[in-house]
């Protein structure tokens, strides 16, 4: 029980300590207004292109994509901010289980990403005056939660790159736009080149976007468990890879002496 409480305390305190956009003004600008304008732009665009066909699914998919603010930039701050503040080496030299610690740090961003996506979706529904079936709500929240978890896993891998390169904003922007491009949030995946579709299978949010469209447009829940299971496994794999990166960085610092964690 102590360990569970500690897990969530670390999650909350890390979030407050490391996430640079927590200032209310900055939070509203970056985490609310900016995502809402992005959602509005793509929703108007798909509404025009597809003449309103499948609009609710596209709004839902675009709302899910808003989570990249947390699952890319927020997660990156878990390592970049820690390093910037000079606390990373203290964390690494403490007796705490590192995998558990970085997982706990990620949980707050999963929840924050979910919050941003829900706000975006409510905003989209209000603007376009659409509604969804009540029984889809909980399922959608579950799908989004797992999808955002998976995206956070990839974000943490990218965050580890800050141990090797200072160009993190560039890498973060490339990842964010890749997720927007490959997930199929604004067009059917079938119009993408085949090789890109295969590549998208290994990218988070792809299955989440597909499920969101199926649930909201078709009321089709039949693929939920299969696709969600794959998305979850993908997320777990991403987290394992990121922990291996952190372990490797620790090895380089401790044994080879070629990396300074400070």
């Amino acid at each position: 029980m102590q360990a569970v409480q500690r897990f969530f305390r670390q999650s909350l305190l890390s979030y407050r300590a490391l996430f640079g956009w927590l200032d209310p003004k900055v939070y509203i600008l970056v985490m609310v207004l900016s995502p809402l304008s992005q959602l509005l732009f793509f929703s108007v665009l798909v509404n025009y292109v597809y003449s309103g066909e499948g609009l609710v699914g596209y709004i839902g998919a675009n709302a899910l994509i808003l989570c990249v603010l947390n699952s890319v930039f927020g997660i990156m701050s878990i390592i970049t901010s820690d390093r910037y503040m000079g606390t990373f080496q203290h964390v690494m030299a403490s007796p705490v289980n590192k995998a558990g610690l970085f997982l706990s740090r990620s949980i707050a961003h999963v929840l924050n990403g979910l919050f941003t996506s829900i706000i975006g979706f409510i905003f989209g529904m209000m603007i376009f005056q659409i509604s969804i079936a009540p029984d889809a709500i909980l399922l959608l929240v579950g799908v989004w939660m797992v999808s955002i978890f998976s995206a956070c896993g990839l974000g943490l891998i990218i965050g580890c790159f800050c141990l090797w390169t200072p160009s993190m904003n560039l890498i973060g922007n490339i990842l964010a736009s890749s997720l927007l491009l490959l997930s199929g949030a604004n067009y059917p995946q079938s119009i993408m080149p085949v090789w890109l579709v295969h590549f998208a299978d290994f990218i988070p949010l792809t299955r989440g976007v597909e499920l969101t469209k199926q649930i909201l447009n078709e009321g089709n829940y039949s693929n939920v468990f299969a696709l969600l299971g794959e998305e979850f496994v993908l997320g777990v794999c991403f987290f394992i890879i990121s922990f291996l990166f952190i372990k490797y960085a620790e090895y380089l610092s401790r044994v080879r002496g070629t990396m300074d964690l400070d």
Binding site: Q10, L13, H90, S94, P95, L101
Partner: peptide
């Protein structure tokens, strides 16, 4: 201090 206390269990 609370955060680092948690790191040291």
């Amino acid at each position: 201090l609370a955060y680092f206390s948690d790191l040291y269990k």
